[in-house]
Design a binder for these strands. Structure first.
Lengths: 121, 121
DNA sequence: AGATCGGATCGAAGAACTTCGATGCGTTGT
DNA sequence: ACAACGCATCGAAGTTCTTCGATCCGATCT
């Protein structure tokens, strides 16, 4: 490590321009909005808990009746949050007889994590 | 792959209990709230773009004056979003003379991705 | 068929968020 | 010392989100 690059690294010491230029493309607004939509679904403690409880069940699925009690919220509220997680592509819903079973979409969380590293790596 | 486990997999065919038991602990409410706080910071398209633009700059840092224009929002609004990202531990702020430089906290996004896989893996 | 149960949908009330213009504070330049 | 600049903070207005009780729809049981 020599001090060769020191002449251009600190840019302007006093006045003039303040920042360094871009070295690569930033995420375009559409991609950013997509990413934000997914993260917004995880931006509520209730929904994180729902996701975790579903994943903790045998077979990776659980019905609403098993989710309402540990969450401690009303049944309509739990259904509302589950719908948001389904719309975000993190859960799937399957009606079997009288009960509705929710399960984690395989790989959906890993895909999100990968996008995370890519967006700011 | 034999059909050995089929006897206990479908649980109750008609009435009775609906769901399978838990096979492991779900995330406790405090941990879920922590995780949700981080994701909520990423749950806005403006903040995802800010993070991306900062990371795209040389040296991984940028000042507010370089962020306001590409975002297309007012300077107070950009400052507000930057503060949220700092509070979430995703950005750091450093005042150098007249300008405030924001940079991505190294590893913060990877850590989030790891928690993601852990919480529902 | 009628009753019952699981769960989604429908407003509504309250809280939280996003955005802005105006203003204040610290640094830089004249 | 004074003016100019970068940026944070302060209300305020409008929107969105969270939560609930009430209600409705399907499936199951008697």
């Amino acid at each position: 490590m020599t001090t060769t690059a020191l002449e251009l690294a600190p840019a302007a010491p006093a006045s003039g321009t303040c920042c360094a230029p871009l070295v690569r493309e930033a995420a375009d607004p559409a991609a950013a909005a997509d990413l934000a939509r997914s993260f917004k679904a995880l931006g509520d403690p209730t929904r994180v808990r729902l996701l975790s409880i579903v994943a903790a069940h045998d077979g990776g699925e659980a019905c609403v009746c098993e989710l309402t009690e540990p969450i401690g919220l009303s049944q309509p509220t739990v259904s509302h949050h589950l719908k948001i997680l389904v719309d975000a592509g993190l859960l799937t819903r399957e009606q079997r007889g009288k009960w509705a079973y929710y399960s984690v979409v395989p790989g959906s969380l890993d895909r999100l994590g990968a996008l995370l590293s890519e967006a700011a790596g």
